[in-house]
Design a protein around this nucleic acid. Structure first.
Length: 424
RNA sequence: GGACAGAUGGCAGAGCGGUUGAAUGCACUGGUCUUGAAAACCAGCGUGGGUUUAUAGCCCACCCAGGGUUCGAAUCCCUGUCUGUCCGCCA
């Protein structure tokens, strides 16, 4: 959401910002709606003032036992006029609100221009690539008898996976390792949030109203299944005023994520790269308005840190304008090396949303002693996607000699001390 | 799932359909008094919007949210949300 006053004062800035996302002029329509709304509101308020005045007089006359019929008739006339204006004003603000809530955030000037993910800009690479091609996680996992797509499909259809034995355990080990690292080393507070949320929570983080078709929902209760823990974690601070000295608030959670993947038909259909359901450890930071830039860098290093500890090769990119998400001012993606695809694939996305979400969910901070409040800035980042991390470990730690998978050093304590997953 | 009760300012808590944006207490801010502090006393103290050069004034809205009744709604009616209590079911 946006500050309408800022749009009034600086329409060119906003249009230029939206143009970078491929949108045409928006402020003409916005400002036109805004001025009709205000015009309507002003005349409505004048009538309300008249009515209030007359009603007070009626009250006084009646209190003194007089006859107020004339005044009452006069107000009745005003009332008709008001009804029409009220409806018009309501319609106009609804229209304005719909328009504003469907528009994406203005990106930072640091975001490079570009049309698609091909134009994302690499900022650094890390790690030594030890495996460059060959069997992918599907072959490896099925050969070990520890990943089963057919059984998952039998009960749930396409884009579901079932893990067994030490593979299921390694998924759990990854999640534990991520959570333990973020809570013990990175200052995040672990949260176990609701996985079903109402529409207003999704509006707050920006998935609604525009992206309803990407979500699963419940028939009976009108809940939505969370597509990411960003939704419940960020909504912790919805409708609240935080004391400045309590900031930053840092939350992390390990949750399933549910995505309908509407519109991705044919993309990444093989394996468990793109599923309707996957686990992810998510980080969310709530910070003072002028601190989000440094927090964004910090959060990036938190996510990179767990990949370094796993010794997985990755590269980090700044998303270009065409690839940056709806609510973000700027996004870093971390892409992990996937040997069988001979490329890097997204494993984490870290976004600074500025005050965009905070405005939508009314999350504010008050400086000690100050009277007025400011919207906080919100950031979210995967730390990291568990399913994709599992793919990366399977493929990067694969031993072609026996078809087994070495256990990364940091996961051994979570794997009962075993060195390797092998057949049998 | 069924029955009932409730939601008022930072907190607690009044409130009759008619100068109620809202009593009172606490907290907070300024002042008087005091060597200083406390106490006491005095004064102030919500948010959003419109108009405007204006954080001045004037006006509008807001007593959980959204509708409605009425000349007039914190107060009456309907719907929703949340909280509490009891019953049923249940990991």
């Amino acid at each position: 959401m946006f500050d309408i006053k800022e749009i009034r004062n600086n329409p060119d800035f906003f249009d230029a910002g939206w143009a970078r996302r491929g949108l045409g002029n928006q402020t003409n329509a916005i400002l036109k709606l805004d001025s009709s709304r205000r015009e309507c509101q002003t005349s409505l308020q004048e009538l309300q003032a008249k009515r209030n005045d007359a009603s007070k007089q009626i009250g006084m006359i009646k209190r003194d036992g007089g006859d107020a019929t004339a005044q009452m008739n006069a107000v009745a006339a005003i009332k008709d006029e008001m009804g029409a204006l009220e409806e018009k004003a309501r319609g106009l603000s609804l229209q304005l609100n719909d328009l504003l809530s469907s528009l994406p955030n203005i990106m930072s000037s640091e975001v490079p221009n570009g049309a698609s993910e091909d134009d994302n800009v690499e900022i650094h690479k890390w790690g030594e690539i030890k495996r460059k091609s060959g069997a992918d996680h599907v072959e490896i996992g099925e050969a070990l008898g520890l990943i089963d797509f057919e059984v998952a499909a039998k009960m749930s259809g396409a884009r579901f996976t079932m893990l067994k034995g030490s593979m299921a355990r390694m998924e759990r080990a990854l999640a534990q390792f991520f959570l333990d690292t973020h809570t013990a080393e990175h200052g995040y507070t672990e949260i176990s949030p609701p996985l079903l949320v109402r529409d207003n929570a999704l509006y707050g983080t920006g998935q609604l109203p525009k992206f309803a078709e990407d979500l699963f929902s419940t028939k009976e209760t009108d809940h939505f299944l969370i597509p990411t823990a960003e939704v419940p974690l960020t909504n912790i601070v919805a409708d609240s005023i935080m004391e400045q000295e309590s900031l930053p608030h840092r939350y992390c959670a390990h949750t399933p994520c549910f995505r309908s993947e509407a519109g991705s038909a044919g993309r990444d259909t093989r394996g468990m790269l793109r599923q309707h359901q996957f686990y992810k450890v998510e980080m969310v930071s709530i910070v003072e308005p002028d601190k989000s830039h440094e927090e964004h860098e910090r959060m990036l290093s938190c996510a990179e840190n767990v990949l370094k500890k796993l010794d997985l090769p990755f590269r980090t990119v700044t998303l270009c304008s065409g690839d940056t998400g709806f609510g973000a001012t700027k996004t870093y993606d971390i892409e992990v090396w996937i040997p069988a695809q001979e490329t890097y694939r997204e494993i984490s996305s870290i976004s600074n949303c500025g005050d965009f979400q905070a405005r939508r969910m009314n999350a504010r901070t008050r400086t000690k002693g100050a009277k007025d409040t400011q919207f906080v800035h919100t950031l979210n980042g995967s730390g990291v996607a568990v399913g994709r991390a599992l793919i990366a470990v399977i493929e990067n730690y694969y031993d072609p000699e026996d078809g087994g998978i070495f256990i990364p050093e940091v996961l051994k304590p979570y794997m009962g001390g075993i060195e390797k997953i092998t057949k049998g």
